[in-house]
Design a protein around this nucleic acid. Structure first.
Lengths: 232, 232
DNA sequence: AATCATTGGATCAGTTGTAGACCATTGACT
DNA sequence: AGTCAATGGTCTACAACTGATCCAATGATT
């Protein structure tokens, strides 16, 4: 008789509400969803979006403030403002299996997203925004590169017109970011990445799905090689 | 000045713990992770896996029992047993955007999973199990088809050797299932699907990635057309 | 027939998270 | 200079969830 194989059922909840909330916020900031210098929604609004009590949200915000992710100002027109340069994270050791897992999934998702974005063809304002995001990325300071890079990639995924794909890309990108935090950010690589971004963006604007996919694949394999290199 | 576009931050938690637990169990059962007739882990074990108190888990199980997903027996060697034929779900109206969203993502993930599975090449026991799952599917009763079908697809995703991909496939498959629950299960389609499954499985066993991807794509587009047809 | 480990069933004190009201502060606007 | 709406800061009563203990039932094993 065949041995009964039962994949484990993943936990309903990881950590408590406070921890999850905290993680969500850090993630959103590192993904460039709230770019450096921008303002978070008011506590009341954010709590509602996250479906969390304001009390709990405030605990998380206090933690973010303590780790200097944000600065908080009171009064009307006050709020929580994202720091201009994000704090460094404690570097955990790289696990080869995890690296391979993340990179494999990303290699499936992002080229498909770029391809779909090119197929759909962005509207006028979307075209301008996509290009300006790219330009902003080439001009920003090194300390702001990662979140703005993520923001560009997420915007492309959004242009695929497939919300679930965007969510999946955001998930993997958050994980990739935590890997990238463990290796240095070299100017040479940035130039290379910027050139590749140009290719991807142009292909999307040209409505050339195959080129968009190919350029994205090329781009991803670049950083993938970089990451694998740091595994020894 | 460019209008500030801020994608919404998804909720930290959807529903309360009870509802989430309940949903997880229903999902696992409908995905064939606990096939018809099989036994769930003991309440203590399940609660631990789901990271939920036994109290809450029991509330969810009580609900499952009430909707005749499971039958419960007391005493040693007792436990919760999955029903032989799963209950029908209330049919919500099909939303065209949601259908397209799910099908698009699935079309990205599952062919990639099949391709990777073929590339890797299953080990001896895995080969036998994969084939026997397929055979089981061709021989089962109509009431058991959906969960066993899902189980086969998940097993293929698992053979990709990429845990995150498996998780993503499971997610989309759960959503596809909820769509499929709204359209009838025609014997003609089943025969067709079984033939396509054969192609996919054979390609994987042959270690032919391109064929595996192509066969899976073909298979998915079949049911996709079916679903789109029911949108009018 | 008796044993007993394992399972579901029930209860309760303690902790975590929520909802809402209210206060304190700020700065654009009049 | 004064107003006031929106924001962060604080507190409290309430609900949800936990974890721990104990009870009741079952059936393979002896």
């Amino acid at each position: 008789m065949r041995e009964q194989i039962r994949p484990t059922v993943p936990p309903v909840r990881v950590g408590n509400v406070f921890e999850e909330t905290m993680e969500r916020l850090v993630r959103s900031i590192r993904l460039g969803q709230f770019p450096p210098g921008s303002r978070l929604p008011s506590e009341r609004d954010l709590a509602e979006e996250l479906r969390v009590s304001r009390t709990t949200l405030r605990e998380a915000l206090a933690e973010l403030k303590a780790s200097s992710y944000v600065t908080v100002r009171r009064g009307r027109y006050g709020g929580s403002y994202v720091a201009d340069a994000l704090p460094h994270r404690p570097a955990a050791p790289l696990d080869a299996d995890e690296v391979s897992d993340i990179l494999t999934l990303r290699r499936i998702l992002e080229p498909a997203a770029a391809e779909l974005a090119a197929e759909r063809g962005p509207t006028g304002p979307q075209r301008e925004e996509l290009w300006s995001l790219h330009v902003e990325l080439t001009e920003c300071s090194v300390g702001q590169y990662r979140p703005l890079d993520s923001r560009l990639h997420l915007r492309i995924a959004e242009l695929s017109g497939t919300p679930s794909l965007l969510a999946a890309v955001a998930d993997t990108r958050a994980r990739v970011n935590s890997l990238l935090d463990r290796i240095p950010l070299l100017p040479t690589n940035l130039d290379h990445a910027n050139a590749q971004h140009t290719e991807v963006v142009v292909a999307i604007l040209d409505g050339d799905p195959a080129a968009a996919r190919a350029a994205m694949l090329d781009h991803l394999d670049g950083t993938a090689a970089l990451l694998r290199g740091f595994l020894g």
